[in-house]
C-alpha cells in the first residue's frame, strides 16, 4: 500500500485521450501536407513538404503506438489511424483545413509549428517518461519545421504585392482556428496537475511572441481575436475530416486487414 511508485497517479483514460489528441494532430496534418506530393511549385518545395509529412507520420506512429499501449486493448497505431470513425478523432480543426494555395498551406504550417514546438519543448519535461522520450525525439524534427515555415512566411509576406496579399488572406482565414490550441478542459487539467503535460493556456504567451515576431518581419497584420472555432479535441469536426478519412482509410476499409 505504502510503496512509492514512479508512475504518476493519473487516470489512464485521460492519458489515452491526450495521446490521441497529439497523435491525431500529427496524422491529419501529415496527411494534408502529403497531398502536395508531386504538386508543389518547385522541386525543392515538393521535397521539403514530403519530408515534413514523413516526419509527422513517423511521429504519429510513436504517439498512437503509445496510445494503444496505454489503452491496453491491443490496438496498434495502424488500428487507431485506419479504423476509427470521424467522431473518434481528436485533432484540432486547424490541421484539417484544406490546403488552399501554397501560401495558405505554409501559413497553416507556421501557426501549427509555433505551437507544436512549444508543446513538445514543454513535454520534454513530462513526468510520464514515455511521453518525455517521444517529445525529446520529435522536438528536434519540429524545430526544423518551424525554422522553415517561419522563414517562408516572412519571405512571402514581405515579398511581392501578390504574395503579400495571399499570405494576409491565408492568415485572416486561418486565424479563427488558432484559439482551440489554448483552450483546456478537465482532461488537460488532470494531466497538467500531475505534471504530465503543460496547461494549454500556458503556451499562449510564447506562441504570441513567436507569431508576433514573424508577422512583424513579414509585414503582415495580426487579425483581431474574434470568434474562435473549436470542437475537434472532443470529436466534433468540420466536414473536411470525412473527406480526409475516406482517402486515408480507404484501403483498410475496402480490404480489411490487408498487408503487403
Amino acid at each position: 500500500m505504502a510503496t512509492a511508485t514512479l508512475e504518476p497517479d493519473v487516470d489512464q483514460s485521460a492519458l489515452f485521450e491526450f495521446l490521441l489528441r497529439i497523435g491525431d494532430n500529427a496524422l491529419i496534418l501529415g496527411h494534408r501536407v502529403s497531398e502536395w506530393c508531386g504538386h508543389a511549385p518547385a522541386l525543392e518545395e515538393d521535397i521539403a513538404l514530403a519530408n515534413t509529412a514523413l516526419d509527422l507520420i513517423g511521429q504519429t506512429q510513436l504517439w498512437l503506438g503509445l496510445a494503444g499501449e496505454v489503452e491496453g486493448e491491443g490496438r496498434s497505431a495502424d488500428n487507431l489511424a485506419y479504423l476509427r470513425d470521424g467522431f473518434e478523432f481528436r485533432n484540432i480543426l486547424l490541421v484539417e483545413r484544406p490546403n488552399g494555395d501554397y501560401g495558405k498551406t505554409l501559413m497553416r504550417q507556421f501557426l501549427f509549428d509555433a505551437w507544436h514546438y512549444l508543446l513538445l519543448k514543454a513535454l520534454k519535461g513530462s513526468a510520464e517518461k514515455r511521453i518525455a522520450d517521444i517529445a525529446e525525439k520529435t522536438f528536434k524534427e519540429v524545430s526544423y519545421h518551424l525554422n522553415r515555415s517561419r522563414d517562408l512566411v516572412i519571405r512571402l509576406g514581405d515579398g511581392s504585392a501578390e504574395s503579400h496579399r495571399r499570405m494576409q488572406e491565408a492568415l485572416d482565414d486561418l486565424w479563427p482556428y488558432t484559439g482551440e490550441m489554448f483552450v483546456g478542459d478537465t482532461i488537460d487539467a488532470a494531466l497538467a496537475g500531475a505534471g504530465i503535460i503543460p496547461a494549454p493556456q500556458s503556451l499562449k504567451i510564447g506562441w504570441d511572441e513567436i507569431v508576433a515576431d514573424a508577422l512583424s518581419e513579414s509585414t503582415l497584420v495580426k487579425p483581431a481575436d474574434g470568434y474562435m472555432h473549436k470542437g475537434g479535441r472532443r470529436g466534433v469536426h468540420t466536414e473536411h475530416l470525412g473527406y480526409i478519412l475516406s482517402e486515408l482509410q480507404f484501403l483498410q476499409r475496402a480490404y480489411p486487414g490487408a498487408v503487403w
Binding site: Y117, K140, V142, S143, Y144, L146, N147, R150, D151, I154, I210, D213
Partner: peptide, 9 residues
C-alpha cells in the same frame, strides 16, 4: 548547428 526553431533566420 541544429535548428533551434526560431533563430536560424
Amino acid at each position: 548547428t541544429a535548428a533551434d526553431g526560431v533563430l536560424m533566420k
